[in-house]
Amino acid sequence: MIVIEREVAVAAPLERVFDYLSDFTSTEEWDPGTVRTSLVSGNGGVGTTFLRKPFDHLGEEAEEGLRNALGKLAA
């Protein structure tokens, strides 16, 4: 399993940050390797499927599917 971790300090409530990062339609705003992400099925909750167009290692567009496995923010 691939694990990617990043740490950034922001002046925003944790719930707002979690909601923003778990909405994969915003990935091109915060992930420089993403060209475009679009909703395939679902309502954004757990089990929602997205199609992500990243750059591959040669700088060309590639394609991969993402499934939202995130639930609610744990307290």
Rank of each mutant, 00 (worst) to 15 (best):
S22E: 06
V17D: 06
Y20Q: 01
R67S: 10
G65K: 10
V17E: 02
E5D: 12
D19C: 04
V17Q: 06
Y20F: 15
A11C: 11
D56L: 03
A12G: 04
A69H: 13
E61L: 09
P54F: 01
T27R: 07
G71W: 01
F55C: 00
F50V: 00
N43E: 13
F50P: 00
T48I: 00
L39S: 04
V40G: 00
M1H: 11
N43S: 13
T25I: 06
R52G: 04
T34D: 00
M1W: 11
V35I: 12
A74S: 14
N68R: 13
A62Y: 00
H57V: 06
G47T: 02
N68S: 04
L73A: 01
G33A: 09
G33P: 07
L51A: 05
S22M: 14
M1I: 07
E64G: 11
L14F: 08
V35D: 09
Y20M: 01
K72S: 14
E64W: 08
P54L: 01
A69Q: 12
A12R: 12
P54S: 00
R52Y: 04
E63W: 05
E60P: 05
P32Y: 13
D19N: 11
R52N: 15
W30K: 05
A12F: 06
L39E: 01
G65C: 07
L73R: 07
G65T: 12
L73P: 02
F24D: 01
E29V: 09
H57Y: 08
V46F: 10
G65V: 13
Y20E: 00
F55D: 00
E61Q: 10
F50M: 02
D56N: 15
S41E: 11
